[in-house]
Amino acid sequence: MSARADRPTPGWLAAIPAAWLAVFFLVPFAIMLGVSFAHRVPGGFYEPGFELDSYARFLSPFFGRILLTSVALSAGAAAICVALAFPFTVILARMGGRAQTLVLVALLAVLSLSEVIIGFSLSTLLSKTAGVGNFFAWLGLIEESRAYTPSLFALMTGLCYLALPYAVLVLYPPVSRLDPELGEAARIMGATPLRAFWTVTVPMLRAPLFGAAILVFVFTLGVYLLPQVLGQPAHWTLSVHITDQAIFQSNLPFAAAMAVLLLLVSLAMVGITLLLGRAR
């Protein structure tokens, strides 16, 4: 920046948001970190202290399975979402302004929907009495309507439903800024449309694609309601257990330790994305 003779805002203006976010965003994280080292009082709350008991519990096979479940579910959702979202975004970005706006309104509406509402809607859609089961039976594909929830399939559908709009909206800016003439140039040089897509569009968007996958991964890591509504207990993720420990088992130190772990995993992922972005 140049040394402007004067700036549009006074310097103290920054103090308002800085103080606000420090008190209500950074301090809670600091307290949470403190609680994760605190001593649990069974049946009660916790008392201050410094012990690694809560973290030690990460070493159990039980916890290992939870972590593995969370990571596998999120990785699966990330892969499916990006695979679906990428062609969607490329087509979307080439549409006319009005059509784009309509699709974006639909995406934003779905994106803003509560996990609760998505869980409820999908469980209705996949239910025996009101859902696709009825439809398939009516078509004669199956003999009698049946429920498709709770199941791994239902849960994965829910995760993708939740994350697909995010994936599209993350890919949307880089895809829409991509010069359409590049693809056209490739085609003039003799590439088929599909080949132009694979040899020009995909390589140019490698970083945003990876970024979108990471974002969906982090985002679905935080999902904790769908596993309870659409999945079986075996599908409970780290997030479900954090809530469970905090609210129902009253074990705040362990919940906090798991949240810290989740935070570290998320930050590591975001860090990798940033590094990849810079390397380009």
Binding site: F25, P28, F29, I31, M32, V35, V218, F219, L221, G222, Y224, S239, I242, T243, A246, L252, A255, A256, A259, L262, L263, S266
Partner: peptide, 11 residues
């Protein structure tokens, strides 16, 4: 992930 912030706010 909002669970993290949620727990932070809770404590």
């Amino acid at each position: 992930p909002p669970v993290i912030s949620a727990l932070g706010f809770l404590v």
